[in-house]
């Protein structure tokens, strides 16, 4: 299982797009935590499982227009290790 952290624009279909990509790229969702931050963006923590490459899933999710930030949370360190697009709200900071 891997945990993905995302910051996503709150637009019509944004959450559905993420779940659709996860399913279509052959992962299953084990846990999901969605909150709205002060900028009215979604902060999403998604735990997924699957036998395919997690890097490929991240690349597919990155392409979604609504996804402003995405990172893989390293299991032990609780640290976001991979970043993409812009990260401007700080909503997804993790303690190291």
């Amino acid at each position: 299982m891997r945990e993905i952290a995302m910051e996503v624009t709150n637009s019509y279909g944004a959450i559905e797009r993420i779940f659709r990509v996860v399913r279509h790229r052959r992962f299953s969702v084990c846990h999901c935590d969605i909150t709205t931050n002060q900028q009215q963006k979604f902060a999403i923590k998604l735990t997924v499982a699957g036998s395919k490459s997690i890097d490929n899933l991240l690349e597919q999710l990155k392409k979604l227009v609504d996804v402003e930030y995405i990172g893989l949370v390293e299991k032990n360190k609780r640290q976001v290790v991979e970043t993409a697009k812009s990260f401007n709200s700080g909503a997804l900071s993790y303690a190291t």
């Binding site: 279909g13 559905e16 227009v65």
Partner: peptide
């Protein structure tokens, strides 16, 4: 919008 999700780059 819902039915478009799998067949577009983006939809509004």
């Amino acid at each position: 919008l819902g039915l478009s999700l799998a067949v577009v780059k983006h939809s509004f």
